[in-house]
């Protein structure tokens, strides 16, 4: 089963190496990892998609927690959530296929971000199955290049994955 983890970490140099190293060292598989600032400038948020049964996920979570810079881990897949991924696809075009491709762009609510004489660069966001479907429908035309950001996810509704003010201030002595 696939789990999507939202991981809040202190924004320190090397944190990405620590997290990525942990996964490879312990033999856990990462499907995707996306990282960037959170609403708090001192805290980065990683979205990690991992494949594995419950016991693997338990170990992943516990081992991640052992990293001093990891503050909070939430398995969003255990709750109602939305996830998105942004993909850019450069597709081969001929005069004869251009119109058809643009129709697909419309259907999938994708956007054309660059036009070349023999190619179109298309941006699409969405959940995984939509993106996969879009990719498949473009394949026959010849995909020249593709880049995916990896998934990001959030819980639905008012619930949020943040660090409480209390936790922020709390000090150890």
């Amino acid at each position: 089963m696939t789990h999507t983890l939202a991981v809040l970490v202190e924004n320190t140099p090397g944190i990405l190496a620590r997290v990525a190293g942990l996964f490879s060292r312990r033999g856990f598989n990462i499907d995707s990892l996306a990282v960037g600032r959170s609403e708090d400038p001192g805290i980065s948020r990683m979205t990690i998609v991992v494949e594995g049964d419950d016991s693997i996920l338990e170990q992943v979570t516990k081992q991640l927690h052992k990293l001093i810079d990891v503050i909070k881990i939430t398995d969003v897949t255990r709750d109602d959530f939305v996830d998105r991924e942004l993909v850019m696809i450069k597709v081969n075009t001929e005069t004869s296929t251009r119109a058809e491709i643009m129709q697909l762009v419309d259907i999938f609510r994708a956007r054309i971000v660059d036009v070349g004489p023999k190619s179109l660069t298309i941006e699409v966001t969405g959940y995984e199955s939509k993106i996969n479907a879009f990719e498949n429908s473009l394949r026959p035309f010849g995909i020249l290049e593709m880049v995916r950001t990896g998934k990001v996810a959030m819980l639905r509704g008012f619930k949020s994955i943040t660090i409480s003010d209390h936790q922020k201030r709390e000090e150890t002595n």
């Binding site: 001093i68 503050i71 936790q167």
Partner: peptide, 9 residues
């Protein structure tokens, strides 16, 4: 420092 801040530990 007397106090330290280690929110993840």
């Amino acid at each position: 420092p007397r106090n330290i801040h280690l929110p993840g530990y």
